[in-house]
């Protein structure tokens, strides 16, 4: 078992290196960054902040990784966050007991995922188009639920989804790590992981080998919807209000980026839940560093784009030979001169 973990760690070396790099930048920006202290039974410190703030995107990445592994994509996760948050907030405000409101929000995510899965697996729509439908229509649905306002609520249990502490960690961190662990367990202790990778690599061969391809496809979208709903609950609880316009806005792109940084190809095939989570943490660590550096806010997006571009080109199979040949040519010129 320990050897098994070592193998996995070895595979995650690039992501771990990136994360360490991003954390070092944080230390450089804020010297006390790595300090951890226990206060009132809860850990505080820069690392905890990154985990806590990164929890929603971690969850989205956990759901997105299997989707991308089937050569799909789920553009609707940000919107599912908004809808599920709106459902939970409207639920408690309408007097629903908090466990029911939370269940309703999670069920909403399942239904959204089912819808996506149906379009992709049964009606054979291209995933980018199929999930675009919900991405476009979903904000409107969320706005209908919140009537265009930010639905503020005071239900303490719902607020606790983002504010409570479990095992000295903020609850969102525990939830995200638990979801990642559960998903990893689900795909690796059952045959789902193999089926997802087989379907993503060669759907025709997989079908001929007896893999229920449409079931596999449908399942990954349902799971992605559920993860998004959980992320939506956290985001909503965090601001004690459901903001239909802004909750989860553009986070689908962060999630896709996290999965790609985690080494999963958009052409499907091999995927790793753990590395996708690391990818999400890398993004959050970068964002935190930029935020805390006190740079003019105009630079945020540019810096983020530059770092991401650098990370991804470095991963590209075409880049290394290109870099080498450029380097060689440069050296040649130098030699000639």
């Amino acid at each position: 078992m320990s050897a098994f973990i070592l193998i996995r760690l070895k595979a995650a070396r690039p992501q771990l290196a990136l994360l360490v790099l991003a954390l070092l930048v944080n230390v450089f920006v804020a010297p006390g960054f790595l300090d951890l202290r226990l206060q009132d039974g809860r850990l505080f410190g820069g690392l905890i902040d990154i985990l806590n703030r990164g929890a929603p995107v971690m969850l989205l990445a956990v759901g997105m990784a299997p989707v991308i592994a089937t050569r799909g994509i789920d553009l609707s996760v940000g919107v599912i966050m908004a809808i599920s948050g709106a459902v939970a907030a409207a639920g408690v405000n309408a007097g629903l007991a908090w466990p029911l409101a939370i269940l309703a929000a999670l069920a909403t995510g399942l239904v959204c995922g089912l819808w996506n899965g149906l379009l992709v697996a049964v009606f054979r729509l291209q995933p980018i188009v199929a999930t675009l439908i919900l991405m476009v229509a979903g904000r409107g649905i969320a706005q209908l639920i919140t009537e265009g306002r930010i639905l503020t609520f005071t239900e303490p249990h719902l607020i606790a989804v983002a504010g409570a502490t479990l095992a000295a960690l903020p609850l969102p961190v525990v939830l995200a790590l638990a979801a990642a662990g559960l998903t990893g367990l689900l795909v690796r202790t059952t045959a789902l992981g193999l089926f997802v990778e087989a379907v993503g690599t060669n759907p025709r061969s997989s079908r001929l080998a007896g893999v229920h391809t449409s079931l596999v496809l449908g399942a990954v979208y349902v799971w992605s919807g559920l993860m998004a709903a959980l992320a939506g609950l956290i985001a909503t609880a965090d601001i004690k209000g459901a903001d239909a316009n802004n909750a989860g806005l553009w986070l689908e792109l962060d999630a896709i980026l996290a999965v790609v940084i985690g080494g999963t190809s958009l052409y499907g095939g091999r995927f790793s839940i753990g590395r996708s989570v690391l990818g999400a943490l890398v993004l959050q660590a970068m964002r935190t560093a930029i935020l805390r550096a006190g740079l003019p806010p105009e630079l945020n997006l540019v810096l983020m784009a530059l770092v991401v571009a650098a990370v991804l080109t470095q991963q590209s199979p075409a880049f290394r030979p290109l870099a080498q040949s450029l380097l060689a040519r440069f050296k040649n010129k130098e030699a000639q001169a």
């Binding site: 601001i239 903001d243 802004n246 935020l291 805390r292």
Partner: peptide, 21 residues
């Protein structure tokens, strides 16, 4: 000064950053 993109969630995140920094 930092951008909170006019949203509650970002406003909270930015303020957290200020308090830490």
């Amino acid at each position: 000064t930092q951008s909170g993109e006019f949203t509650r969630a970002k406003g909270k995140e930015v303020m957290e950053g200020f308090l830490k920094a």
